[in-house]
């Protein structure tokens, strides 16, 4: 063995770890909120919209699902200033992450919408409900219930994906790691610590999804498993 593992030097940088964790949480929650809204709009646009809109949305979906998040991040961060849009690091990171999540969420949510039996939508129509009321009262909850496992595993991937933002020096956990590592020279200990923080955050988020599921679906609770049943739908990693 080259040396004994020592965590104390790493833990001396607790304030940096906490700052990094907070930034990661901010980054993740903003990206998730924006990405899910984008996905919802995308899914509705694809199923209800005119065909040109539907084609535009599926192009967006395919482009973002078939290129790496890191490259998307570089495009947003380095390329937007070229067309005169100077975006701060955090904004670039949230934008890239949200666009990426939005693409996956569009497909996931759409799968939920089309899984609702046609007769239920027709029942809504014949009761005089408007398209919007049908989405709101008849489609929303059952569709969300169907896709909940896939959607929440995708959200977990977005949480973990925030680590990529260290590539443009967003001051989140992974950046904190490289700072601490360069000061302590305790690389392995630093990354083990960071990994443990990410693991705790992931389980915390899963617990949160479980609670939300319990509130939304009064009855059958769909637990958010880490199963990625269909990698075509959900991503995996970057």
């Amino acid at each position: 063995m080259a040396y004994e593992m020592q965590f104390q030097p790493v833990l001396n940088y607790a304030p940096d770890l906490i700052d990094g964790t907070v930034t990661t949480l901010v980054l993740a929650s903003q990206s998730i909120a924006l990405g899910v809204i984008l996905g919802g709009l995308g899914a509705i646009g694809r199923t209800e919209g005119p065909s040109w809109l539907s084609i535009a949305i599926s192009t967006y979906v395919e482009v973002f699902r078939n290129t790496p998040l890191l490259v998307q991040l570089f495009l947003v961060f380095f390329a937007l200033p070229m067309i005169g849009l100077q975006v701060p690091v955090m904004v670039a990171a949230v934008l890239a992450m949200a666009l990426n999540l939005g693409a996956y969420a569009t497909e996931i949510i759409r799968a939920g919408i089309v899984a609702i039996p046609k007769a239920q939508i027709e029942a809504g129509l014949s009761l005089g409900l408007s398209r919007f009321q049908i989405i709101r009262h008849i489609i929303f909850i059952p569709a969300l219930m169907i896709i909940y496992p896939a959607l929440t595993s995708q959200l977990t991937l977005t949480l973990l994906g925030t680590s990529i933002a260290s590539a443009i020096s967003a001051a989140e956990l992974s950046s904190a790691a490289s700072v601490i590592e360069s000061k302590t020279f305790r690389s392995l200990e630093t990354y083990i610590t960071i990994a443990l923080i990410y693991i705790s955050l992931t389980f915390m988020f899963r617990f949160l999804y479980w609670i939300i599921g319990k509130i939304l679906f009064h009855r059958k609770v769909v637990t958010s498993k880490n199963v990625v049943e269909d990698p075509l739908l959900t991503g995996a990693g970057a």
């Binding site: 063995m1 080259a2 680590s163 990354y191 990410y198 693991i199 880490n226 970057a238």
Partner: peptide, 25 residues
């Protein structure tokens, strides 16, 4: 094993492998 790997960012797994190997000399 699956749970832990899937709860860790790939980037961190990469760093762990990178430094883990040198830790093992």
């Amino acid at each position: 094993y699956v749970q832990i790997v899937q709860a860790t960012p790939l980037l961190i797994v990469v760093f762990l492998a990178f430094y883990g190997l040198s830790f093992l000399n």
